[in-house]
Computed example of a mutant assay.
Amino acid sequence: MKLALFDDHRLGVVDEAANGPVVVDVTDALGRPHDPDPLTAGWWRALARDYPRLREGLADAARTGEARPLDSVALHAPALNPSKIIACACNYADHVAEMHDVQERTLGGVESWMMNFDVFLKAPSSLSGPRDAIVLPEEIVAAGQEIHHESELVIVVGEGGTDIPEESALDHVFGYTLGLDITVRSAADRSRRKSYDTFSPLGPLLVTADEIGDPAGLEIRLDVNGEKRQDVRAADLLTPVPAIVSYASRMMTLLPGDLIFTGAPPGVGPIEPGDTLRSWIGGIGELALDVRRG
């Protein structure tokens, strides 16, 4: 099932039609009053947790409801107020290799500890939607620091937990979406460099885990101004999705609706005001984002 958050933070099911993708409002099938405030919308986290029980009712509502063209609605990021955004570092071998040159250029030397797989946190306030611009902070641009794109597969946690075994980790995944981990290249802590407003664009849709199946087959691409920068498959992850979920859950309790960025593919590079980024994951969709100066 492909899900969207749109207009007044309504829940929609997206499908293909003869004239393009359409969305059907299935909010009422959740069986609870709708709270449009993203700061208090616990219904979203409940959906992430309870999707297996709600799936049939949502599918029935999608079959019988009124379909609207997807481009006629205001799309939001397909996540509401997650308790945390977890992100993976150094999860593609070729990206680890390229970071030696990036760090030599931007830091004047290689930080060896940064070349190992691990997880870190990004601020939930860095989330932005599929039709929002990426805003580069004025002071960072003025200082001449590089700001890079990182196009990533993002896990949306379903039933959370602690110390989740790797063999059952996919049972704790609600779905997947596409995200960009926008990054200032500096000596500052990762969480600081990656948590500016609009530095976690997300969308356009969330595709539930039962539709994706094995996420290893997903292709991830990113172009900047029509030039290909990144093109990998999730199968290239050094630490695959089940191991990521298990590893993260050993450090922090995963809660329904939490987001996990799975790591930057090789091909990272600077973005500048005026650029247009197009990022795509097969089966999930495309983000087309303009870059501007704050």
Rank of each mutant, 00 (worst) to 15 (best):
D71C: 00
R131F: 13
D101S: 15
E104I: 15
D71M: 01
S72G: 04
T198C: 13
G109A: 12
G129W: 04
Q230M: 07
E166Q: 15
S112R: 15
A74R: 07
G160A: 02
G226P: 06
Y196E: 02
A61W: 07
G161Y: 12
H9L: 11
Y196K: 03
V141P: 09
V173F: 11
R63S: 12
F6K: 05
A93N: 08
D7Y: 00
T183G: 03
A77Q: 02
V241M: 08
L54D: 07
R131C: 14
P242H: 11
G179H: 03
T162I: 11
V268N: 03
E104Q: 15
S72V: 00
I212R: 03
V119H: 15
V14H: 02
D197Y: 05
A188W: 11
L11I: 14
V110Q: 14
P69W: 03
I284F: 07
D181G: 09
V110S: 08
L70H: 08
G217C: 09
T198W: 07
R105N: 13
L127V: 15
Y247T: 15
E98N: 09
F117G: 04
P270Q: 08
P33M: 10
H76K: 03
V184P: 04
K122W: 12
A288Y: 01
D35W: 02
V22I: 13
P52L: 09
E16K: 05
V24L: 05
G57I: 07
P33E: 10
P78E: 06
I85Q: 11
R68Q: 14
S72F: 02
A142I: 08
